[in-house]
């Protein structure tokens, strides 16, 4: 699947490991929350896929071992993932990659980034153009976000150029 990073399509090195499959020997492994305990091993690049009802607390203890947290959006109207991403960044200080997967619209791209999401998994064949357009659409915002921005005061800020 194409992976969007900073508005550009990039290579995705991660392999989603089904619950009944063995862990790959030499690729970074993206596992479900269920398999997270057995997947944790020194030296392994590990990611976890969180369902929409997951809370940051569910993975808090494992954060030092995680390079990637994929947050699932079952429907673009379901905004729980925004709070989940932001809590991972702001409360738990997670600095690895946060990836949005599922049904997401380009119109939500800025919101995702401002909540601390780093990458978006696009459906196969998706055109990145509307995503790039969405990135440049707003130069200003009215509230603090998870990401570092140039605050004009505590409410207003100028957003980083894409």
């Amino acid at each position: 699947m194409p992976l969007l990073d900073g508005g550009h399509v990039v290579e995705d090195p991660w392999v989603l490991v089904p619950d009944d499959a063995p862990f790959p020997a030499d690729a970074p492994a993206l596992v479900t929350l269920k398999r997270l305990p057995e997947a944790r091993r020194p030296g392994r690049r590990l990611g976890v896929l969180l369902g929409p009802a997951s809370r940051a607390e569910d993975v808090a203890a494992a954060l030092p071992d995680l390079s990637l947290i994929a947050v699932e959006f079952p429907k673009f109207r379901d905004g729980r993932g925004f709070s989940l991403a932001r809590t991972l960044r702001e409360r738990h200080g997670f600095t690895g990659e946060i990836r949005a997967v599922g049904h997401i619209l380009p119109d939500q791209y800025r919101f995702l980034l401002r909540c601390g999401v780093s990458t978006v998994a696009l459906p196969e064949g998706a055109d990145p153009a509307p995503w790039q357009a969405a990135l440049g659409r707003f130069g200003v915002a009215y509230q603090p976000a998870a990401a570092e921005e140039a605050p004009l005061d505590h409410l207003r800020r100028r957003l980083a150029a894409p």
Binding site: F76, R77, D78, G79, F82, S83, R86, Q108, R110, F111, L112, R114, C115, F138, A141, Y142, Q143, A145, L155, R156
Partner: peptide, 16 residues
């Protein structure tokens, strides 16, 4: 007005 500005296109709370 402060609440209006803070809530305008709030990145986390636009899909409640």
């Amino acid at each position: 007005e402060i609440i209006r500005q803070w809530s305008t296109l709030h990145p986390e709370f636009s899909f409640l």
